[in-house]
Nucleic acid binder design. Structure first.
Lengths: 237, 237
DNA sequence: CAGTGGTCTAGACCACCGC
DNA sequence: CGGTGGTCTAGACCACTGC
């Protein structure tokens, strides 16, 4: 059963798309619209609130509610947390093999701080070169606390997205990441693995991943070729 | 007069901060809490919804509402639209003079598309080198439709943030920007203006700015030194 | 001032979860 | 099954805006 406010939201959307309500126009008042849709005013307002958050309506207190042109959808926006694999696929590339190195290490001070560990605690470090169209396009280093990862990496064949691996094998759903966007120096060894063409430039994402309860669960470095991927973001005040 | 749900929200926050409710704990049920706060259940829920969006509470249908550790506040997050000037200030640098060039030009195909103009339409182009601590730290190129800008740039002394200039002089409040994050090649002329030190790297933001009604009003290129600025972003699924 | 959106209420019923 | 959050209602009053 669809929620009523969701139905109203979709009806409003289709009215906007079909041109029944045009861009710039003011909607009839909430009381009137609620009556027309046969719902309570609060229910109608729930629908409006969602469309306002989506940037399709502009609500002005004491004035009215206006239809505004939707901003273009950002293809593969950086705000949207996604795996490198899905970035490759959404860039319409043929994802190739990813050479893997997996080892246990003791964690550095930086990583310890990011993951809430003590320096020297054992961690699992996973390094991968990702290829597409037979070329390296990304280099990733993922670090997970040994305590958290346990033997999951040893017992199972690890494959596919790390994010879904976390959910299915460790019961931790990764829903947030704090990322620092860096431009690495050319002398960075990891960066050089990707510098095969003169017009290639590389972006580095230093990321801390969190689960639903905001616990830090993974630290990662992702080197990504900027001549292959585009990075977009919507900024608001 | 503060809205009741806002008061409740702040009370909940102070209870979390003071440790009256601890991280990981379940809140009493909504019915009970509403009674304790002396408000209706819907009002209490409004407060909870805001705290959930802020990542301080986790609401599980049929289970309960839980206090979760707040994620660290991101200093000068990229998602937050801000001027280069305020980026400089929040990096605790002494903003110096910015050499300015201002001219009228005819707009290129890319800019035309971004601003909804025709190629060749007249535009105002503002170029600035921003300095801090007596060094160049950013190079900006801002493009505005001549039709929109009118004589605002000629009549007034332009100073301070472009964003506030837009609001006060043109009556357009810039609230959104779509940005592409790029790593420029070293041979990029604008990039080279900033490459004075061997350890300097440069990030380029290609941005389209929109007003409240989602009209594109400005196109800008911002070259920013990554050894001076850090760029952070929070990503969610 | 009239009309708009913003807030609040008390009560009802539904959907989900764990036992 | 009992308890939790999710939705919905009808009505009331308040706050803001423009004329």
């Amino acid at each position: 059963m669809q929620a009523k406010h969701h139905v109203v939201k979709q009806q409003l959307e289709s009215m906007m798309e079909s041109g029944r309500i045009r861009i710039g126009e003011r909607l009839p008042s909430e009381v009137q619209m609620a009556k027309e849709f046969g719902v309570s005013r609060e229910t109608f307002r729930s629908a409006v609130r969602i469309l306002e958050e989506e940037g399709k309506l502009l609500v002005k207190h004491g004035v009215g509610t206006f239809v505004i042109p939707p901003l273009p959808v950002i293809p593969s926006s950086l705000e949207k947390l996604s795996s490198v694999g899905s970035m490759i696929r959404s860039a319409q590339l043929d994802e190739g093999e990813s050479r893997v190195s997996l080892k246990t290490d003791s964690c550095s001070k930086d990583v310890a701080e990011a993951l809430g560990l003590e320096p020297g605690d054992p961690v699992i470090v996973l390094e991968r070169i990702r290829t597409a169209n037979a070329e390296p396009v990304a280099y990733s280093i993922n670090t997970i606390s040994k305590k958290l990862a346990g033997e999951a990496f040893e017992r199972g064949e690890f494959q596919g997205s790390l994010l879904s691996f976390f959910e299915s094998q460790l019961g931790r759903k990764i829903v947030t990441a704090d990322s620092e966007i860096c431009v690495p120096l050319h002398i960075d060894r990891n960066c050089q693995r990707l510098l095969l063409h003169p017009q290639t430039t590389v972006l580095l994402l230093k990321q801390v991943h969190y689960d639903e309860a905001n616990n830090p669960v993974m630290y990662s470095l992702d080197y990504l070729r900027n001549d292959v991927f585009t990075f977009r973001i919507r900024r608001t005040v």
